[in-house]
Design a protein around this nucleic acid. Structure first.
Lengths: 292, 292
DNA sequence: TATTTGTCTTTTATCCACAATAGACAGATT
DNA sequence: AATCTGTCTATTGTGGATAAAAGACAAATA
């Protein structure tokens, strides 16, 4: 198996949804545009649709024959890219599993365990190394530096520098900048979730990322924006892993966000800085509490 | 050709120098320690020494027979690791060669041009991507974002944040911290080079890196220290590429360093901050001037 | 008893092959 | 004239093979 056809399968699934809402499909380039894949893949999907008797396909005529059934979809396990699978596997091992700092990481063993080739694992580790959790000994193994207290402190130190700088840029954005509208949408979602916090508190994680990324982006600095990837991945897995008091913690964070958002909108740099600091301080505490 | 034996060749050359200064070589583990390689490689070297009639080797007795000649050494081109070769090749193309922003980068073409496999090029690009100069389109090519004015400004913005923070940590280091001694050594080198600036101005580049890295390290923050890799590589190639007024620029930077060093040693955070700012401002100007 | 050496196994670095995917171009269609 | 389709080529993603290098362990030596 040289290359998984996950792009095909994922696009196929998404195309089924397009198909469900129309009686004839658009042109190949347009479908490619909608699905974010090349025409080659679009044609492969159409070919398979035809085989599955979902459509008839003759050049420009792509007529829908029937509605897709649940078992027309590829199972979701098959639509994840290898990189995602490796990342999840690896993060589970190092965050959840008892992985002590200083432990050696073995490419071959990891590959065997995940059931994949070494090349992919290797590339993953190289990409992952920028997160500061592992380190390479050339011609030898990787070393796990571990999700330790120091790691969390170093991470949040830089985060604070970057976010304070970004918040300062944010308040200075002109009123017609699209970020303000996005901020409004985000604020509205905060209110929605808070109104039904008991059922919807799990949506916080995603919203949190969306909000902070928006703030970081206003720095217009690729290093600051890219650094948010690290924060993002750490918090993402951290939320999955540590669920104690999640409802309460999230509710508090949502309130802090709202104060922060209001401060940003005031265009008052001083107020924004204070609200930002307050929120980041409590986010840091939350993170630290989850580390033994 | 599965793996280049550059580790062997490089260690062999270094071992020749050890050999030149003694009449019998130490034990295998000790040699491995000195050369920073495994015993396997040490034994390969000793075996080759024997073949070249440089030594006789019988278990613990490794008696030197003759002094190494120039042609006992492997040529330096053969001792560079593949990663170094790819890096140099690539940097020459994108910094020196007329590479416009937005250009596509093709793994296969790059590999052919350098005369290496695609895997190595691919791994290099992944590692290199954290420097913010290239960006990947999944399932497709890389895009060169280019060594532009914006890049330089974003880089220096973060650099200033990080170095100011690090300088503040530096002045607070206890007097018995080894960094102070290293600072003294670095200062002495500055005076030496300044005293013979016409001949030695080229040594500035290396010293500059050593000094700033020392400062960054006192932050005790892996993200700040790691970020210095980016600054380091950019300035390294920048110095190689842009040599106009090098002597004068370096002399000025050396003077600024000395003021900065003195300020650090005063333990006065305010003074250190000022000296740091002053130097970074002129470093930024220098960098910007080299961009069209 | 502490090292060192001889031998053997495991892992990494690198190349290569091949399916999946992207992308180019000319002819067909509206 | 603009867009779409058919066909073909080029490139990426991934597994597998292999030499180089690391490293483990027991026997040998000082």
């Amino acid at each position: 198996m040289a290359k998984q056809n996950t792009v095909f399968k994922d696009a196929y699934n998404r195309c089924l949804k397009v198909l469900a809402e129309t009686s004839s499909l658009p042109s190949e380039p347009e479908l490619g545009q909608v699905l974010g894949v090349s025409r080659t893949t679009v044609r492969a999907i159409l070919g398979r649709f035809e085989e599955a008797k979902l459509i008839t396909w003759d050049k420009r005529k792509k007529i829908v024959l029937r509605q897709p059934q649940p078992d027309d979809y590829f199972p979701t396990e098959e639509t994840d890219s290898l990189a995602e699978i490796i990342e999840r596997s690896f993060m589970r091992r190092i965050l959840a599993g008892g992985a002590e700092p200083g432990m050696q990481i073995n490419e071959l063993e990891l590959a065997r365990e995940i059931g994949t080739g070494t090349t992919s694992v290797r590339e993953f580790l190289i990409r992952f190394s920028r997160f500061g959790l592992i380190e390479k000994r050339p011609n030898s193994h990787w070393i796990l530096k571990g999700f330790t207290r120091e790691f969390a402190l170093e991470l949040t130190e830089v985060r604070e520098m970057f976010e304070l700088r970004s918040a300062a840029s944010f308040v200075a954005l002109p009123d017609n900048h699209p970020a303000w509208q996005e901020l409004n949408r985000i604020e509205a979602l905060h209110h929605e979730i808070l109104a039904d916090i008991d059922n919807r508190y799990k949506e916080f994680s995603e919203l949190d990322e969306r909000f902070h990324l928006l703030v970081h982006k206003s720095s217009s600095n690729r290093f600051i924006v890219d650094f948010y990837d690290i924060i993002s991945i750490v918090f993402h897995y951290h939320y999955q892993w540590n669920k104690t008091n999640a409802r309460q913690r999230n509710a508090r964070a949502l309130e802090e966000h709202l104060a922060y958002i209001e401060a940003l909108r005031s265009h008052d740099a001083k107020r924004a800085e204070e609200a930002c600091r307050r929120h980041l301080r409590s986010a840091r505490e939350t993170l630290l509490q989850s580390i033994p």
